[in-house]
Design a protein around this nucleic acid. Structure first.
Lengths: 145, 145
DNA sequence: TTGTAAATGAGAATCATTTGCAATAACGCG
DNA sequence: CGCGTTATTGCAAATGATTCTCATTTACAA
C-alpha cells in the first residue's frame, strides 16, 4: 500500500507515519551525500517548514534503531547519516578538502566474522573509517599537517 | 636526560614539561584501561589536586597531535584515551557489560594499505571499532536487544 | 467520528569539550 | 642563580551537538 519501502518498514514496525518522518526519509533517500542533522533539518524544512531539529533527531534515532539508517562520525566532529544499502561500505574523509570517498573492504568483513567466531562475540555494529589526505590535497602541497 | 620516553618526546618537540603534563602522562601510561577525560582528571587529581579538567583536555590534545596518544569513541558516547603502542589494535565494546576486548587485525591493516595505494590516499588516522555482545552477555540471556 | 497514545515543536537542559583571560611557572639567557 | 619572556594553567563562561520536558497536535484503530 505504500510505495516507499522505508516508509513501509516503519509502518510495519508499528510506528506512525507522520509528514515529518516521511519528509526526513525522502530527504535521506534522495541524497547521495552523508548529511548531518543540521543539513537534514534544513532540507526537510523546505518541504515541511514547521519541522523541528528535535524531530529530525528523533526520526533518525528511530530509523537507526530499526537499522534503516546508519550514523557515521566521519571526520571526528558530529554525526552524519545515510540510508543503509545492501552492500556495506566505509568512508575515507579528506582532512584537506572534506571530500568523502566511499570504499568497500571485504577483507575487513571477513576479519570481523573470524574474530567474532573465535571470541564468541555477537557483533552488532561496525565503525570503520579513515581520515587523511586525498590525491589532490597531497599534490596541492597544502600540507597543513 | 629524561627517564620517561613520552616526556622526552614532548620536551624534544619544544613543549614545556609541567607538573600536570607529567602527571597526565604517568596516569595514562600506568593504566591498562581506556580512560575518558573525567577518569583521567580524577586520577590526575590524586597527584596534582589543583589540576583542572581543561588542562587534561589540553594535554591530551597535544599528545594526540604528536601521535603519542590515541582517542577512541568506544561505545558511542564520549572519547577514551590510550597511549599509542607499537602494535596497532582495535576495540570491541560489549553493550551488555561494557567490557572492552582488544584485538589486532592485520588483515585490516593490509586492506588499508592496499586501498591507500590504489586511491592515492594518505591515511593519517584509522577508526575501527565494534560493538555488540560478549560471550557472557549472550549466554546470560540478557538479550535486551 | 472519536478516544487515546504516539509524535511534534519550542525551548530549556545536559554533556562533553573548548575557549578567554588573568595569574602562574618553565626554561633559555646572562 | 636570578630574570624575563612566553607557554601553560585554572577557572568560569561559552560552545556545539544532542536529548529532554511538556503542552499541543495528530495518526489511526475502533
Amino acid at each position: 500500500m505504500e510505495a516507499n519501502p522505508l516508509i513501509a518498514a516503519l509502518q510495519a514496525s508499528g510506528h506512525r507515519i507522520t509528514r515529518q518522518r516521511r519528509v526526513v526519509l525522502e530527504v535521506l533517500e534522495g541524497s547521495q551525500e552523508h548529511l548531518d542533522a543540521e543539513a537534514l533539518y534544513q532540507k526537510a524544512r523546505q518541504r515541511s517548514p514547521r519541522i523541528s531539529l528535535a524531530t529530525v533527531y528523533r526520526t533518525v534515532a528511530v530509523l537507526k534503531q530499526m537499522g534503516l539508517v546508519a550514523e557515521y562520525s566521519l571526520g571526528e566532529e558530529h554525526g552524519h547519516f545515510e540510508t543503509v544499502t545492501e552492500a556495506p561500505h566505509y568512508h575515507f574523509t579528506c582532512l584537506g578538502c572534506g571530500q568523502v570517498v566511499e570504499f568497500d573492504a571485504p577483507q575487513v568483513v571477513l576479519a570481523i566474522q573470524e574474530l567474532a567466531e573465535r571470541e564468541g562475540l555477537e557483533v552488532r555494529a561496525v565503525q570503520f573509517s579513515l581520515t587523511g589526505y586525498c590525491v589532490q590535497c597531497r599534490a596541492g602541497g597544502r600540507d597543513d599537517r
